[in-house]
């Protein structure tokens, strides 16, 4: 809304966002930490009304806040390109943050723990519903049974088009290759779309 428009003279950096999601304890924080150049943490405050009957949203009276920590990673890809990673908060009560985290994202990575596959259902539903390109990263935990990607796919109920990749969130090279897989998926989706001649 400020009148000053930025001249296209200086190099304008671009920020790209990828969302890391999945169930509780699935490795989201580990994933972001394995590749981020900063300490992976940012906070958001949840504002809740206390029942005092105050409707003036500009005043704090009658409200209380709870703070939630979000995984946050930054990767400088070059001098004009920044990649940000955001982890979705696990607890349901912070679901209100999801739209904010996901809007404008290049895509999402859904991590799955094969011992508790169903924990990742809400994330998959969300990204399918919002038509966000996503891939599934299968994390192998000790004691987790060895499932083939197609078994995991069946258990998750995701369409055959969604890529499933193995992932060790503790391993930087593995994390890199999962991110690369996501970019490939976004490119593939786009190529399909263009082939189909759709306008979006």
């Amino acid at each position: 809304m400020s009148g000053r428009s930025s001249e296209p003279s200086a190099a304008h950096p671009i920020a790209v966002k990828i969302v890391i999601s999945g169930g509780f304890g699935v490795g989201k924080t580990t994933f972001v930490g394995a590749i981020s150049e900063i300490e992976p943490l940012v906070t958001e405050a949840e504002l809740t009304e206390k029942s005092i009957g105050i409707d003036d949203t500009s005043a704090v009276s009658g409200k209380t806040t709870t703070t939630v920590a979000l995984d946050f990673g930054r990767i400088t890809l070059d001098d004009a390109l920044l990649l940000y990673l955001f982890g979705t908060p696990g607890q349901d009560r912070f679901a209100f943050l999801w739209d904010d985290l996901v809007t404008g994202a290049l895509g999402a990575i859904v991590l799955v723990d094969t011992r508790r596959i169903e924990d990742s259902f809400p994330a998959i539903d969300y990204f399918e519903e919002h038509e966000i390109p996503f891939i599934v990263g299968i994390n192998r935990f000790p004691g987790g049974q060895q499932f083939s990607p197609s078994e995991v796919r069946d258990a998750l109920g995701v369409s055959p088009g969604v890529p499933m990749v193995q992932c060790d969130a503790r391993d930087r090279e593995s994390v890199k290759s999962v991110l690369v897989s996501l970019t490939e998926e976004v490119l593939a989706k786009r190529a399909n779309r263009e082939r189909a001649g759709s306008t979006w």
Partner: peptide, 19 residues
């Protein structure tokens, strides 16, 4: 900082290659 309306194919390829 004004951002592109959509991520171009070349931008996504650049992200992929840089990662």
């Amino acid at each position: 900082e004004i951002q592109p309306e959509e991520f171009s194919t070349s931008l996504i390829e650049r992200i992929r290659d840089r990662v």
